[in-house]
Design a protein around this nucleic acid. Structure first.
Lengths: 115, 115
DNA sequence: ATTCAATATGTTTTAAAATGAATAGTGATT
DNA sequence: AATCACTATTCATTTTAAAACATATTGAAT
């Protein structure tokens, strides 16, 4: 007898500004790490990500969104750093909240499936 | 003045069998085309897809799902062909239904966002 | 003015993925 | 047994994406 696999539904959501995708799960994690460690460099190190990639993500996010999500400082003590703006904080929170709502909805609706 | 971009949320869903992803938007379209034209070859031609890729998708779907979604016949009049099984039909329908439900939910919830 | 750790980018290398071409196999029909 | 249009599969090639590497720049602190 072959064990039947259990069907389940997974999803991803993205925040767009007009038609520009600017935020998804991965970028939210990057934002959270920047908030935690105070720099793009160290945030990237914590994930499996090169500084270059992380920096490009930040650039894209800031350029696409109506307000910048990450504020950067150059030079000075410690070489500079990066921090999350109020808009960035809101983006993180609302992304998580939204994701959770969708997750609950999908979990509930999945029960009705007769696939 | 710079025009403010309108924020919006988009999503994708996938059907999994245990931890194997076996159905997403692209594959559903492939299934529909196979149903319509009766062969993998012609279904692939209708999309921007090589026969090779389409054939591999069908193979993966059939292997991952509990029941095969596409039934194939080899040789004979017309060289053979492919058709959708009952399970395949159900998969198509339920994918669309589910996607629509999630879409409505997200559209509704999006109104509450203050991003 | 030198140091330092970070941001800011360009360039090169490597790896992964998609594509295309080529070939074999199938079986009802003629 | 020859044909035909499809499925089935391998292999070499191309394209794309990711990673790695290399520098330049910045500015407070010393």
């Amino acid at each position: 007898m072959s064990a039947k696999k259990k069907y389940n539904i997974r999803f991803r959501i993205w925040f767009y500004a007009d038609d520009d995708k600017f935020l998804g799960k991965g970028r939210v994690e990057l934002l959270e790490r920047i908030k935690e460690v105070g720099s793009i460099t160290n945030a990237a190190k914590g994930m499996k990500m090169s500084y270059r990639q992380a920096w490009q993500m930040v650039k894209e996010m800031n350029e696409s969104a109506n307000e910048i999500l990450v504020e950067k400082s150059l030079g000075g003590k410690g070489g500079g750093g990066a921090s999350i703006t109020k808009a960035g904080e809101r983006a993180i929170t609302q992304f998580h909240d939204f994701e959770q709502k969708v997750n609950r909805f999908i979990a509930e609706e999945s029960k009705k499936l007769t696939i």
